[in-house]
């Protein structure tokens, strides 16, 4: 058969039993039980996805990414879509232009920016209810590129003022304690992304002349170059996102007048280029730190694609022109109960 595993799914009363057979070892590796909602129930697809993630975890040791969603921007609005391309849904307001969706680490909240009365407003939104609230300190300037800290207490963002663009944090649990992390009178600092332990933040700074990828402690100290570049040779680098396993930072870089996706190895501080066909930008990590979604015009128009870093395989997520600024969710909701 050439396969390593086989999955056998049966119904036992109201419980679905997925049995994973290890073919090489000629035995049952694991049995996963789940109470699935009726087909047609709004949670049915996600429940099946969670079951699939469990089966994959049983086989490979790490869970899959079936029960995840991707937020993205299209025609100035934020949409969510399941990672398999199903269930597309508008989530931002219908009357204003929005940008830069970002997930909370719990998968229950997300943030984004909306243009409003000449300013950029940051909004926090509950995934389940759609209830949204403006961040308390927003509305006085152009605030953009929100990023949640892993503990969900802090929102980091960029604020553009007369002095340029700088990074700030605010405590979103207590709506207090606005802090400025960068002071770049002659440079812009933007696009923050937390390390998964919450200790550090990667960001974009124009202090070397062109935008490049920098890193600092989460309190703003110890700012330094993160992704190496050759002065006067390497193009602008933007849109960093720290991988959920903490080992990599994906970003895009200008190469010969177009953009390509790169990955920085955090430990060795070396970069490698992942794409070369067409324009490729705004990478976002799947929770397995193995897949990246990104925007590419390789098919003639800009749409969302997914790359598997292990195999190098690239597939389209959407067949829709104009989708951009994707943000991949963590694994959503509780996994179903299982027996070893």
């Amino acid at each position: 058969m050439g396969a390593d595993f086989a999955l056998d799914v049966t119904a036992a009363g109201d419980t679905t039993v997925a049995t994973l057979h290890d073919i090489a070892a000629a035995g049952i590796r694991r049995t996963v039980r789940a109470k699935l909602p009726r087909p047609g129930d709004p949670d049915f697809r996600q429940a099946v996805h969670r079951l699939a993630d469990q089966a994959l975890q049983a086989a490979l040791g790490t869970p899959g990414i079936a029960a995840t969603r991707i937020l993205f921007v299209k025609d100035g609005k934020v949409y969510q879509i399941d990672q398999d391309g199903a269930e597309q849904k508008l989530v931002s307001s219908t009357d204003r232009q929005a940008m830069s969706p970002a997930w909370g680490a719990d998968g229950q909240h997300f943030a984004y920016m909306e243009f409003q009365a000449g300013k950029g407003w940051l909004y926090l939104q509950e995934m389940a209810t759609g209830k949204r609230t403006a961040v308390s300190t927003t509305g006085t300037a152009l605030d953009f590129t929100p990023a949640f800290s892993p503990d969900g207490q802090t929102l980091a963002f960029s604020r553009a003022t007369e002095e340029g663009t700088d990074l700030y944090t605010i405590n979103i649990k207590n709506n207090c304690c606005l802090r400025r992390l960068t002071v770049g009178r002659f440079s812009d600092n933007l696009s923050p992304t937390f390390s998964p332990d919450g200790q550090r933040m990667a960001f974009v700074s124009t202090r070397p002349g062109l935008p490049q990828i920098y890193v600092m402690a989460a309190d703003g100290t110890d700012q330094q170059l993160f992704a190496p570049f050759d002065y006067g040779v390497t193009g602008a680098s933007n849109a960093p996102e720290w991988s959920p396993d903490g080992q990599s930072v994906a970003f895009h870089r200008d190469v010969a007048g177009t953009l390509q996706v790169f990955v920085l190895d955090v430990r060795t501080r070396t970069v490698r280029q992942l794409t070369s066909v067409g324009r490729n930008e705004d990478p976002t990590w799947a929770p397995d730190s193995r897949h990246l979604a990104f925007v590419s015009d390789r098919s003639g128009y800009r749409q969302l694609w997914i790359i598997d870093l292990d195999t190098g395989r690239i597939r389209p997520l959407l067949q829709q022109s104009g989708a951009r600024l994707p943000a991949w969710s963590p694994r959503l909701s509780e996994a179903p109960s299982s027996t070893p």
């Binding site: 830069s100 152009l142 960029s158 553009a160 663009t165 812009d188 933007l190 696009s191 933007n238 849109a239």
Partner: peptide
């Protein structure tokens, strides 16, 4: 880049 352009426009 889409987000960098907000800083540049500023």
């Amino acid at each position: 880049s889409d987000e960098y352009n907000l800083a540049l426009g500023n």
